[in-house]
Design a binder for these strands. Structure first.
Length: 638
RNA sequence: GCCGAAAUAGCUCAGCGGUAGAGCAACUGAUUCGUAAUCAGUAGGUCCGCGGUUCAAAUCCGCGUUUCGGCACCA
């Protein structure tokens, strides 16, 4: 007898091996219909999987958190089937489920056009309507390689050849289409339903390696029902509305133009935002024991050679040849310059930890395809600092940094921060025991700071392990902002030293750290995160005084003066326009507060306070309103 | 850097071989109005750049530049 234990604890006995589909049918006809897959002892498998021993079994329906991935993986297969039907000369490669959808990479000499996408999508609908059973088969490896080679599917054959010997090769057949796949899959193509849409075609390298040929990737999105699909498409539209490039123009924050690719022209309002953020960070740094410096933009090649940047990073550096034939480089990083300041005079252990900060303007020649608004640029300013310390101080400095970082992100409205811990890469400098200590210190410190880290194996810098702090933006993209890297190498290369308690000369450890990463990128994220509706303390224009008639002009000027007197960023709108017009315009400009004044307010010394997006108004005495706004505009942590 | 797409007024876009268009914005005038668009008028263009095809090119073709979507990159 085989005992099948269901999630509710109940048991069913079978006197012979039984498939997931049969179990579902035995439980009830409704479940049989909605069953998509089966979970055997926690592992997701095809519904047709035959269970031959006692097991914990759960029937997977669309409610299962992993069911969507199953659906999307099927969508990829159905798309591949459609493509093979329409364009038989195409070779298929891989097609996984991804967040919100799926993709499939194809090899085909002719590019897919948007018209092709419509055809493929229509064919996919037909394949769903055919409701072809999806059947698993297994094949011995050599046979599978020959099978796909005979079909002209060189990529599939290559994938199979790279699967370790002795493993059975899983194939899935639906109609005339057969694909290498580890599964599991839905029982038939009809289960995919109609809630999918092909989104775009893009290039992608075979096996993700830029030395390989480029394949054509078709992206799609897939959901269990049309409402979910529609909600997703609406979400994409909303995300587009908060794109920082669009808001940057609409809110007159910055612009970019062809003559300065990868650089930003900051307009008065955008620069106000920048200075607000910079002043805030500067105060945070002062409060946590940093000193601020400023180092040269142009530095002779010899320093970059000594630091190792010339060799490792030279291709990304802008260089300048002077008239006396010296080669200078525009600095891509601040660290070598900070070491130069450290090296002046003799440092004692009493000077450590020395926390040296700079709002360092750096230039890097980024690949042309990498540029993205102000998020990825060639000229940027880091909130950079290097902490020169002893090895013993790594933990306490890391804990302090993590706390600082948490406080700052919180002040900007980011509560959910993910942390990646990148450990030793294959090619690295320094002894293994040094790495042991550095990695242990970083892990211990992040735990002490209450951070949960995920391992990013082998992704550390060549000179030391690092923590990376990742924020997710409105369109679901991840942006690495903060970082903390332990460095034993640069102090050695640039000969930085201090005198220890025992009178011996020692090498300091350097902690490279940044909270925002770069101002450009962080401000871009901030714009998208708030959709341009900045909290009061960040808003470039905090208050607009708007008149209802010209009779109130003089009083409006008085109101403006009292706002400015307390340091609020205020503007005045005396135009001969209806108040409806003014309200609309300043709302679109995303000004958080409007003070509306008409004859009544002028006579009583009051203002009508209206908040962005709100319908209600509040009539306040001028003095009360000013006091209220000042407190609301207070910079956090001040 | 690689694949694909795009570039027309300040913005959003139409026009796709035969006189360069609309809405909003701008400017001028009228309107003095109570919480998301008052009315009328005026002006605004190297149709990304350079070549080519053609009687004729914003439109078709080639090269280049930039942007967008991905991929790779983000030391």
């Amino acid at each position: 007898m085989i005992a099948i234990t269901l999630p509710d604890g109940s048991q069913r006995q079978y006197d012979r091996p039984v498939s997931g589909a049969e179990i579902a049918r035995d439980i009830g006809p409704g479940l049989a219909k909605s069953a998509l897959a089966v979970r055997v002892d926690g592992v997701m498998k095809d519904l047709a999987t035959v269970i031959a021993a006692d097991a914990q079994v759960a029937i997977v329906t669309r409610k299962d958190p992993d069911a969507l991935a199953l659906l999307r993986h099927d969508a990829a297969h159905v798309m591949a089937e459609a493509v093979k039907e329409l364009y038989p000369e195409t070779q298929v490669t891989i097609g996984p489920a991804i967040e919100n959808g799926f993709y499939y990479d194809f090899s085909r000499p002719v590019p897919f056009t948007p018209d092709d996408l419509a055809l493929i999508e229509a064919r996919m609908q037909a394949i769903v309507a055919r409701d072809e059973p999806i059947l698993r088969e297994e094949m011995e490896r050599g046979a599978a390689v020959r099978f796909f080679e005979d079909m002209g599917e060189a990529y599939k054959a290559e994938i199979i050849a790279s699967i370790p010997d002795g493993q059975a090769i899983g194939l899935y057949r639906q109609g005339a289409f057969i694909d290498l796949c580890r599964g599991p899959h839905l029982p038939s193509t009809g289960k995919l339903g109609k809630a999918f849409k092909l989104m775009k075609v893009a290039g992608a390298y075979w096996r993700g390696d830029s030395r390989n040929e480029m394949l054509q990737r078709i992206y799609g999105t897939a959901w269990f029902d049309e409402q979910e699909l529609k909600a997703h498409l609406t979400m994409l539209e909303e995300a587009e509305k908060r794109d920082h490039r669009r808001l940057g123009r609409e809110m007159e924050l910055f612009h970019q133009q062809d003559e300065a690719v990868g650089s930003v022209f900051w307009h008065p309002k955008g620069w106000t935002l920048w200075r607000t953020v910079e002043a805030y960070i500067r105060r945070r740094l002062e409060a946590t024991g940093y000193v601020e410096v400023k180092t040269p933009q142009l530095v002779d090649r010899s320093l970059w050679e000594a630091s190792g940047h010339w060799e490792k990073f030279g291709a990304n550096m802008f260089t300048v040849l002077t008239q006396d034939e010296r080669m200078l480089a525009v600095k891509p990083m601040n660290c070598p310059c900070h070491v130069q300041i450290f090296r002046v005079g003799i440092k004692s252990y009493r000077d450590l930890p020395l926390r040296m900060a700079e709002f360092g303007s750096c230039h890097r020649y980024e690949p042309s395809g990498a540029m993205h608004g102000i998020m990825r640029v060639r000229a940027f300013t880091q909130d950079d600092a290097h902490i020169f310390c002893t090895e013993d101080q790594i933990t306490s400095e890391t804990v302090a940094f993590c706390e600082l970082l948490k406080a700052i992100y919180g002040d900007f409205g980011f509560e959910d921060v993910r942390v990646k811990f990148s450990d030793r890469p294959a090619i690295r400098a320094g002894a293994d025991e040094t790495w042991d200590r550095a990695e242990a210190a970083l892990l211990e410190a992040s735990a002490a700071a209450g951070l949960e880290t995920t391992l990013n194996p082998g992704e550390g810098a060549f000179y030391g392990p690092k923590l990376e702090f990742v924020l997710r933006d409105a369109i679901g993209r991840d942006w690495q902002c903060g970082t903390l890297q332990v460095d034993f190498v640069l102090p050695e290369r640039l000969d930085a030293s201090y005198i220890a308690e025992d009178g011996q000369k020692r090498r300091p450890v350097m902690l490279h750290r940044a909270v925002l990463g770069s101002f450009e990128r962080f401000l871009g994220i901030l714009i998208e995160h708030h959709a341009g509706r900045f909290p009061m303390w960040l808003a470039p224009v905090q208050v607009v005084v708007a008149t209802i008639t010209n009779d109130a002009d003089d009083y409006a000027r008085t109101v403006l003066a009292s706002l400015k007197a307390v340091g609020l960023r205020a503007e005045i709108d005396l135009r001969n326009e209806k108040i409806n017009f003014k309200v609309r315009e300043h709302s679109l400009a995303k000004v958080p507060v409007m003070l509306v004044v008409g004859r009544r307010e002028g006579e009583t010394g009051s203002v009508a306070l209206r908040r962005l997006g709100g319908a209600a108004q509040e009539i306040l005495a001028l003095g009360d309103a000013v006091a209220k706004l000042v407190s609301e505009a207070a910079v956090p942590g001040a």
